[in-house]
Amino acid sequence: MTLKIDCQLRDLDFTEVGTHAQKMEEMGFDAAWTFEAGQDAFTPLTLAAAATKNIHLGTNIAVAFGRSPFAMAQQAWDIQKLSRGRMHLGLGTQVRAHIERRFSMPFDHPARRISDYVRCMKAIFDNFQNGTKPDYKGEFYQFTLNNPLFSPGAIDHPDIPVYLAGVNPRMCRAAGEVADGFHAHPIHNMSYLKEVVLPAIDEGAKTRGKSVKDLHVQTMVLIAAGETQAEIDKAVEDVRMQISFYGSTPNYRGVLEHMGYGDLGKELSQMMRSGQMAEMPKKIPDAIVEQVAVIGKLSEVGPKVRERYEGVLDRVAYYYPIPKDAEIGNWKAFTDAVKHTA
């Protein structure tokens, strides 16, 4: 299967989203993903869906525990209808501090809770499409009441692929148990994907008679690209900063340990607590950057991405935003190279 290449739809004024999404479509990207930070993840997708015809659209990620399963299902259903079947719903748990202190929502047993969340949401989708009786009673969530006034009704493309995002084996296993796809974290090397992520997804998938091959596995790729060596060097330092930021979070220590840098995560966490963010990137050695990132000129990185990920994952995405003034031709050449259609 041809490796799909996606991009991020972010850091845009809402008045610019439609035009920029059209450019991404012309550039040959297979999908554009939003994520939940300063903006809601769904508003840009709504604008992009109305302005485009072919590019797929998704969240990577929307914070599941910040919304009820019914509220999430409604938002996804509306965009699926508007986009005529191009919606991908990527969900993440976030971490306890943000769920409890920013979203004012409960956080416990995240893998079990997100599994129950997805099952409940799929029961809601079934009710929307087929009018089935609301009769879901899970460990954390229930859906036992609805009526036609609150149902959006059937649509032409009711099958919305649901992805879970994660880093560690337990969340990978949860995706295998209940989801249609998985968003692997951009902080990884190929060994971690092959030896940790994919086997854990497969373990979970076997509980319902499936395998990892039945799920769509995607990741964002930290690509350090530029036209001059100075631009490439600057991009490498941006990647180094990004790795240090993620590495300071305890959830990502397993990846660093797998790479042979078990003590680095603890050191980065201490530096973050001490306010030494500017010093943190200096702790990331070139060996980690080279394992995590794809580095080179834009005309060179497409084949490198394909060689690294083809046959391992189903789709990858350019981690950083595509500049608003980017030349369509240069990026079309990049996407063609990744998909090997040049």
Score class of each variant (00 low, 15 high):
T15R: 14
E16P: 07
V17C: 03
V17W: 11
G18E: 01
T19C: 02
T19G: 11
M24L: 03
E25R: 08
E26F: 01
G28T: 05
A31V: 10
A32H: 06
A32F: 01
W33T: 02
W33K: 05
W33H: 01
W33Y: 06
T34V: 03
F35P: 05
F35W: 15
A37V: 15
G38F: 13
G38K: 14
D40P: 09
T43M: 14
T43Q: 06
P44N: 07
P44K: 11
P44Y: 02
L45C: 11
T46E: 00
A48T: 04
A50K: 04
T52G: 06
N54Q: 14
N54W: 04
H56K: 15
H56E: 13
L57M: 05
G58F: 07
G58A: 01
T59C: 04
T59I: 13
I61M: 11
V63Q: 13
A64N: 06
F65P: 02
F65Y: 08
G66I: 03
R67C: 02
F70N: 09
A71V: 13
M72F: 12
M72D: 07
Q74Y: 07
Q75E: 13
A76T: 07
D78C: 04
Q80C: 11
K81P: 11
K81A: 14
L82G: 02
S83A: 09
S83I: 12
R84W: 10
G85V: 13
G85H: 14
H88N: 15
G90W: 05
